Simulated scan of single mutants.
Amino acid sequence: MPEQAPPDGGADPEAGDGIAAHVPNPPPESADADAHVDSAIARLYGEPLLHLPTDLYIPPDALEIFLDAFEGPLDLLLYLIRKQNFDILDIPMAQVTLQYLEYVEQIRKSNLELAAEYLLMAAMLIEIKSRMLLPKRVDTLVEEAEDPRAELVRRLLDYEQIKVAAQQLGALPQEGRDFVRPQLHIEQALGPVWPQVDPHDLQRAWMDVLRRAKLTQHHRIGREELSVREHMSAILRTLQSARFVEFSELFGGQASVPVVVVHFVAMLELAKETLIEITQAEPFAPIYVRLAYSPA
């Protein structure tokens, strides 16, 4: 007996080659995701940001454009020309003037004092544009008038040349900013350097010797001839036997004030002729006398 066919619209679940029932596909999720990404106003850590945070603080001046970023009206005007690759010898005054006024209008409301010189340049641009719109006189006797933009072009070219030169100078290495000069102390003399004898110390030492000489003076009246050369020779003989001799020891064998004076003059003559040296280790230290140092 033949098998009965299943009802229309169904299939035999036991049949391997039956037709499966049609189930509608769910809507794709990728389309919604793309729509959210397109509507995102920003990305935060890689995630799209769909709404502005309610607790976000934006300073009042965060979006303002300050003209002090430029070094003057010429700097702003040159920036507008070079940014749009305009020919500086054939400036489209209408476009440049409109863009310039947009920049100045943003700062005029909040800082009129800063925008004063920029407003002056804006007036000059408007004047140049007005002169270019005036009809030209048809007169063969009158020479062709100069281009109203000529003076402005000349000023822009001069300013650009100076600006480029300033940038080149600023790129050069500067001491204190890019490098520092090394400082190295070099000892010039290898021999011992004795401190200079203060004349006041020498005077005090001499007064001390003179005071002691007065204590041992003899009350004998007589005429005595003293030779400075002889005392110079005596001092040299004394110094040959010792490396250093204290200043007061040179006057140990002198008996009277005149002899001490002559002996002191002889010592000064030897120092003047650089045959002896008068040294002192430190201020207020004993003064020593020695033969002049002569290298081998």
Score class of each variant (00 low, 15 high):
177 R>I: 00
148 P>S: 02
166 A>L: 13
160 E>C: 06
177 R>T: 00
115 A>D: 05
184 L>N: 03
134 L>C: 03
147 D>V: 09
170 G>V: 01
245 V>E: 04
226 L>T: 05
188 Q>V: 09
138 V>T: 11
152 L>N: 07
160 E>R: 09
143 E>G: 10
182 P>E: 13
213 A>N: 02
216 T>V: 14
133 L>W: 01
167 Q>C: 11
170 G>S: 12
244 F>D: 14
211 R>F: 05
168 Q>A: 13
219 H>M: 13
161 Q>T: 15
147 D>L: 07
175 E>P: 00
124 M>L: 07
169 L>C: 00
243 R>W: 04
197 V>D: 04
175 E>S: 00
128 I>N: 01
153 V>D: 03
166 A>Y: 02
121 M>R: 04
154 R>P: 02
239 L>R: 02
125 L>E: 04
244 F>T: 11
158 D>S: 13
174 Q>R: 01
218 H>S: 08
117 E>Y: 00
118 Y>F: 15
197 V>L: 15
220 R>C: 03
120 L>V: 08
204 R>P: 01
211 R>P: 04
222 G>Q: 11
112 L>D: 07
183 Q>I: 06
229 R>S: 09
230 E>Q: 09
158 D>G: 09
151 E>C: 01
184 L>H: 09
204 R>N: 08
138 V>A: 08
218 H>K: 11
222 G>E: 14
111 N>K: 12
126 I>G: 04
151 E>M: 08
184 L>C: 05
120 L>N: 06
144 E>C: 02
203 Q>G: 05
123 A>V: 01
151 E>P: 04
155 R>W: 02
209 V>A: 08
169 L>K: 11
205 A>H: 05
240 Q>D: 10
123 A>L: 07
197 V>S: 07
201 D>M: 10
216 T>E: 10
152 L>A: 07
233 S>F: 07
158 D>H: 12
193 V>C: 09
206 W>V: 08
225 E>M: 10
212 R>Q: 10
187 E>Q: 14
135 P>W: 03
248 S>G: 06
